[in-house]
Simulated assay, not measured.
Amino acid sequence: MTTLSSMTSSNPLLPRHRALTVLGSINLDLIATAERLPTAGETIGGGALSRQPGGKGANQAAAAARLDGSARMIGAVGDDDAGREMLDALTAAGVDVSDVAHRSTPTGTALIVVDSAGENQIVVCPGANAEVSLEGVAFAEDETLLCQLEVGLDVVVEASRRHPGFFALNAAPAQSLPAELVQRCDLVIVNETEYELIPELAQARLVAVTYGKDGSALFRDGKEVARAAGRRATVVNTIGAGDAFCAAFVLGLRNGLSDEQALAAANAVGADAVGQHSSQPELGRLDSYLGVASA
Rank of each mutant, 00 (worst) to 15 (best):
T105H: 08
G165W: 00
Q148H: 15
G136T: 06
Q121R: 12
E200D: 11
G118M: 01
R161L: 13
A202M: 08
E119Q: 07
F139S: 04
S176L: 09
C125N: 10
C147S: 06
S160V: 08
S104R: 15
S160G: 15
G118K: 02
V151H: 02
T144N: 12
R184G: 03
G212D: 05
G165C: 04
C185F: 00
D154N: 01
L146E: 10
D154A: 13
S160K: 01
F166L: 11
R162H: 08
E180S: 09
D115W: 02
G215L: 01
V123M: 10
G215R: 02
V114Y: 01
D115I: 05
E180W: 00
L177F: 03
G152K: 03
N129S: 10
E143C: 12
C185W: 01
V156N: 00
G212V: 02
G127L: 11
L201T: 04
A204Q: 13
L134V: 06
Q203V: 01
V151P: 06
S176N: 08
V124K: 09
N170S: 15
N170C: 13
V137I: 07
E119M: 00
D142S: 11
L197A: 15
V132D: 14
S133K: 05
P164C: 11
Q175I: 10
S116W: 02
E150L: 12
S133D: 13
V132C: 12
A172I: 10
